[in-house]
Write a protein that binds this DNA or RNA. Sequence first.
DNA 1: GTCTATACCACGATAGAC
DNA 2: GTCTATCGTGGTATAGAC
Lengths: 194, 194
Amino acid sequence: MTNSVDAERTQTKPGKRERLVEAAVRVFYEQGIEKTTIADIARVAEVPVGNVYYYFKTKDQLIEAAIGAHARSLDQIVAELERLDDPRERLKSLIQGWVDGRELAVRFGCPFGSLTAELTKRADPLDGHAAEVMRALVDWAERQFAIMGRSDARELAVALIASYQGISLLTNAFRDPGLMAAEGDRLARWIDSL
Amino acid sequence: MTNSVDAERTQTKPGKRERLVEAAVRVFYEQGIEKTTIADIARVAEVPVGNVYYYFKTKDQLIEAAIGAHARSLDQIVAELERLDDPRERLKSLIQGWVDGRELAVRFGCPFGSLTAELTKRADPLDGHAAEVMRALVDWAERQFAIMGRSDARELAVALIASYQGISLLTNAFRDPGLMAAEGDRLARWIDSL
DNA sequence: GTCTATACCACGATAGAC
DNA sequence: GTCTATCGTGGTATAGAC
């Protein structure tokens, strides 16, 4: 239940907070933020409802934690891509990852895009945090295009990420994974042509 | 209050139902579906809350009416574009319309895309109705590319609409109308190059 | 730290006077 | 056809026993 380190520090049971964040990420993605209740998240995390408030005082704090999890997730993906030498291969590998996840996109769209879209319709300043994560992705893509010697790297990076966000929405709306696959091929050919 | 025709037919005050639909479209767009209450719509439409239920028995019916309004709106846009002779000019005129509306995109994204995205996260079959409207737009774009002699017309149409949906999301997330303007220019050059 | 019970409020929807 | 008052439900968040 408690590992040796945590037991000595009189901390909470390890994993509980993490389970809540994981559950929040998943349920926000599948149901949307507004439709999910604290009880939904607690159930998926297998934590009693009332206990959630020990870890997160408000629903907004759970949203913020979910954004943080997406940021770490993106860091991991980028670190993996950086192991490739050629910027073209990096970008095409990123695209391949999108295509590989197309069945999820069919059901719920882009995990991070749908979250960002929902957050911009809120009053709280949480949408700014989501935008930062999105910006990190665009910045990374821009760097790859710059290495390729493109002076219009920023514009190309924005266009690439926009294409992914848009095709995620259409794939989701039309429930057709083939759209994502075809657009992935098209974008890969485009990268090679630059 | 009642015009001569309606008075004789013992109908409801003219415009009241229309005002409710208009208000629904606007408030759903600005706040998102889940966050808007019947009271919100009633207030904007300047109709007493309880009276809403005379026109629409459920919130879902208001959503359906809003989708219908978007469909009619799209029909109007397309009819306007059809007055141009060249398919390239039609597509570029469509794009110009998107760029002209960039300040709204900064605040709330694409009026119809954000609605569609939200509806796919619902249980009801309402998302299918939204998808039909989106499909009508893709179909129209496909026809233009086909007239241009492209055998890959469908793929190009999907890519075009996806780019718009995606750049709307980024324009909204980053609060930067310049993104939409730059992407509009890029897409116009792309159309000319085909 | 954990969990139950519950306060409190906002929303969708309805009843029924006018 | 219009409008007020209200019911029932379900949500966030808290109090306080363990």
